[in-house]
Design a protein around this nucleic acid. Structure first.
Lengths: 133, 133
DNA sequence: ATACTTGCAAAAGTTTTGCAGGTTA
DNA sequence: TAACCTGCAAAACTTTTGCAAGTAT
């Protein structure tokens, strides 16, 4: 049976407080503040486990490694800022994907990634510390 | 000035004949048939160069490394088959993305990835050799 | 107690880089 | 010839795994 270790709780906690999907490195850094000596292998093992359990979801955006977010956030999409590389969750969905797929194919899911400049970078590229995530 | 080496031509040729975005490994294997002894480092260097030049585009789908496709294929999206992991290009686009983005953000581009089962896997999972790419 | 977890270090993969030699224009 | 490229091997990263020790139930 799965246990509730300090390490696992800290990792889930990071994702609970995140405003967007996080990389294993970001999670490692942040969770280390709660659990001193937390190993990167433990982060990877728990992320993989949580994905298997369906508690979190793995996302990959071009040019970067995998990121993770809670699975129960409801249907949403993502915006990737090209200046600061932060990823934001976006509500809303245009729909109409079934009309795109060719005959004989079956659509199960879809993902949308929007690219552009985020509010903070447009206001002032220095107004928000990129590493503050 | 950029040169036209046999290696570079072979790599571009692979992408020209591809029916979907290819991984560096797939490109390496295929291009080696045209250029014996082609090194994987050369493949990576050329892909990176071609991306910089805007001739090709890098795509990343969950669970796999980067894939590359020609940049001049026109606006399209992708369908990833969950059985065979092949990626298909899809025409059409629902639009309506500007209404999704929050105030203060600027949208520059978008990408859509559709997930499901492809025609070939639905007909007969063995009808098409997965490694035939 | 027992099964599950962890940190460390080693291993396995993938992508990048230094360099001497070869190629293109 | 001068700039550019290539293959090889080493380096740099990222992710996974083996194992002995520690924890949760």
């Amino acid at each position: 049976m799965k246990q509730k270790t300090r390490q696992r709780l800290a990792i889930v906690d990071c994702l609970n407080n995140a405003d967007g999907p996080m990389t294993p490195q970001e999670i490692h850094e942040l969770a280390q503040k709660a659990v001193l000596g937390l190993g990167i292998a433990t982060v990877y093992r728990n992320l993989k486990l949580l994905v298997t359990e369906g508690k979190i979801r793995e996302l990959i955006f071009p040019g970067e490694g995998a990121r993770y977010e809670l699975a129960d956030l409801g249907h949403h999409h993502h915006f990737l800022c090209r200046d600061c590389d932060r990823v934001f969750c976006i509500q809303g969905c245009p729909g109409g994907f079934n009309e795109m797929i060719p005959n004989g194919f079956v659509l199960e899911e879809h993902e949308i990634v929007l690219y552009g400049k985020c509010q903070y970078c447009l206001q002032d590229c220095n107004a928000m510390d990129k590493s503050a995530r």
